[in-house]
Amino acid sequence: MNLSWMAWTQPTAIFFIVIFCLLITMSIWEKISPGGGPRVGILRFETTRGDRLFLSLLGSAFIHLAWLLFAGSNLWWAMGVSILYAGFVFSFV
């Protein structure tokens, strides 16, 4: 199968592998403790850990875009902020 039209690069491959691994981790987590750990957080409605992962990833994307817009192209800092943000989401939302 010729996949050259997809124009893979190493960074994007790593990106998707990380996303894929996150999904696998979530599946294993669900297997260990089923039900998704629902709770009502600071957003005042019920979220499961899947919702929290989605919010973390979506928020991280916007953090990276905001970093590009306001701070520059060194995205490691944005990555740091995103991880802090994800920790916040998983703890409080």
Partner: peptide, 9 residues
């Protein structure tokens, strides 16, 4: 995925 690949090239 292809769009993501294109966006950095």
């Amino acid at each position: 995925m292809t769009v993501v690949n294109y966006s950095v090239q």
